[in-house]
């Protein structure tokens, strides 16, 4: 009994550790004063000011645009790449998979400076394009890593069966393979989106004049003190994601219960 209480207490302490900064952020988004140290009364003014703050809105705009485009492009390239890699064999497959791992295992900062070096070498002007290209580069490997297991789980004769019944390779891909691996594609796309939206290091090195994202804005604000408007924005984004998760979770627990029932049959 004592053991059980201790276990509970430990988990609660850990949650406290992880959530303390988030709680502080949310509380201070309602703080009257701009100072981050002291509480001086409840207000909603930062939530109103948020929609007038051009700097923050612009950063938000670029963050979302880049995350959307990077996740869509990397999902398309990555899905096709995964299908191709799945079809490879032997040493070729090994080489491609290892190269694919490079951006995953390399520290962000190394990926960041190497891309920066490339863009300078190509004399590309730093800005939207360089940022987008670098985001796509670090997103594709994660798409591949989430699509590939779905392909491996798939009955490998499925595409053959479709072709056996008269489907051309493209038709078989569209009607049979893609529907089979769609959960992996969605996971990959979501992963790419969140990675892109949260990225700081790679964007920081490959940004250009006038093009910035939320992380970079926060970093540059950190020295002079962060505008509570950012706290308000983050609170909104965080609760939005939380609601999304609850909806998805409700659906997936329903599916889970269905599966359990099937299994019990």
């Amino acid at each position: 009994m004592v053991g059980k209480i201790l276990k509970r207490l430990y988990i609660i302490l850990m949650f406290l550790f992880l959530y303390a900064p988030i709680i502080v952020l949310i509380i201070f988004s309602f703080n009257e004063s701009k100072s981050r140290g002291t509480w001086s009364g409840f207000t909603l003014k930062w939530y109103i000011e948020l929609f007038r703050d051009a700097e923050v809105l612009k950063a938000l705009y670029y963050t979302v645009i880049i995350a959307l485009s990077a996740s869509i492009i990397s999902t398309i390239i990555g899905t096709f790449a995964a299908i191709g890699i799945y079809d490879m064999c032997g040493i070729n497959k090994k080489i491609v998979l290892n190269l694919n791992y490079l951006p995953v295992i390399n520290p962000d900062i190394v990926t960041a400076v190497s891309l920066m070096t490339l863009f300078r070498f190509l004399r590309l002007e730093f800005g939207f394009v360089t940022m987008l290209l670098s985001h796509i580069t670090f997103c594709i490997p994660y798409v591949i890593l989430s699509v590939l297991p779905k392909l491996q789980q798939m009955n490998k004769h499925l595409a053959e069966a479709a072709m056996d019944l008269g489907a051309t390779p493209m038709y078989a891909m569209k009607k049979v393979v893609i529907p089979e691996i769609i959960p992996g594609i969605i996971t990959g796309a979501l992963m790419a989106f969140t990675l892109s939206i949260d990225d700081f290091v790679i964007s920081f090195f490959n940004k250009g004049a006038g093009i910035t994202n939320l992380s970079i804005t926060i970093f540059s604000m950190a020295r002079r003190g962060i505008n509570p408007v950012i706290n308000a924005l983050s609170t909104l984004m965080f609760t939005g994601l939380l609601i999304l998760l609850l909806v998805i979770n409700k659906r997936s627990t329903k599916n889970l219960n269905k599966e359990v029932k099937l299994y019990e049959k």
Partner: peptide, 8 residues
Amino acid sequence: PMWMNFLL
């Protein structure tokens, strides 16, 4: 928690 910007 990882969904909130890590800098923040």
